[in-house]
């Protein structure tokens, strides 16, 4: 469904150097899988997501969605593509402050042409699944950060996207909620046969991912993060001890 072919992208850092954020990445994503992306802090991972979404064009290589080159799309078509096929979940999301949670979540469907009533009806089950249905009519400004994050997630998934791109989606959530969201994403990936690409620090994501990678020097390599003692898995069990396995791959 989504294919990156030898994609390269560089940008100029504040001190003038040219940084190769993405340097020859090839990746193919099929429906039903959840890919986790790790890597050092820096814009490399986000750049990869932007490329996958068609928000930026690669300097070299191609990004194909269903075989179509995203770089060739007009602004209009790109917007349409985002509207119908993609769902974004990211940390610095912003809701429309004067609207209620459910209206915010319904915006995307309405932009696609649904009436307000239909959109709200369609979005409610998602809100329930995310545990915020009881806050549905509250204004966005009255919600906590975690609740807003979940509204944004509901909105992102509302239009039934075929590809979900998530950048630190669990950043504002506590570990229990974070895990619920990850589990939800994994479940949806399978249920609705969609692809999910997840940029994260959280080692717990690897547990639900089909594949895990690390972006290192602009290139992808397979990666298995160390499970930390604090990690809580879905069964609620405990882990004790500090016996940490050494991570694969060489440190800088």
């Amino acid at each position: 469904m989504l294919e990156l072919r030898d994609v390269r992208k560089h940008f100029t850092a504040p001190d003038g150097d040219s940084v190769r954020a993405v340097d020859g990445v090839s990746l193919a994503l099929v429906p039903g899988e959840l890919v986790a992306l790790y890597g050092p802090s820096g814009s490399g991972k986000s750049t990869l997501l932007f490329l996958a979404a068609g928000l930026t064009r690669p300097d070299a290589g191609a990004v194909l969605f269903d075989g179509r080159d995203l770089a060739r799309l007009s602004r209009r078509d790109a917007a349409r593509h985002r509207l119908t096929e993609l769902g974004f979940i990211f940390q610095t999301f912003r809701l429309v402050p004067g609207l209620s949670a459910i209206d915010n979540a319904a915006l995307k469907l309405m932009a696609a042409g649904a009436s307000r009533r239909e959109a709200r009806r369609a979005v409610l089950p998602l809100l329930e699944r995310l545990g915020i249905a009881d806050r549905a009519e509250h204004r966005a400004t009255q919600l906590s950060v975690g609740e807003r994050q979940r509204v944004a997630i509901a909105g992102a998934l509302s239009n039934g996207p075929r590809l979900v791109l998530a950048d630190e989606p669990t950043g504002s959530l506590d570990s229990r909620r974070a895990h619920e969201v990850l589990a939800l994403l994994a479940a949806i990936a399978v249920e609705r046969d969609i692809g999910v690409a997840l940029v994260t620090h959280d080692p717990a994501a690897a547990a639900v991912a089909t594949r895990a990678f690390r972006l290192h020097d602009g290139r992808l390599e397979p990666f298995a993060p160390a499970p930390t003692p604090a990690a809580e898995d879905a069964t609620g069990g405990e882990r004790a001890g500090a016996g940490a396995r050494a991570p694969l791959g060489s440190p800088e």
């Binding site: 802090s41 630190e168 620090h201 800088e252």
Partner: peptide, 8 residues
Amino acid sequence: TANLNMIE
């Protein structure tokens, strides 16, 4: 140390 990798 949140959001930092191992080295950092």
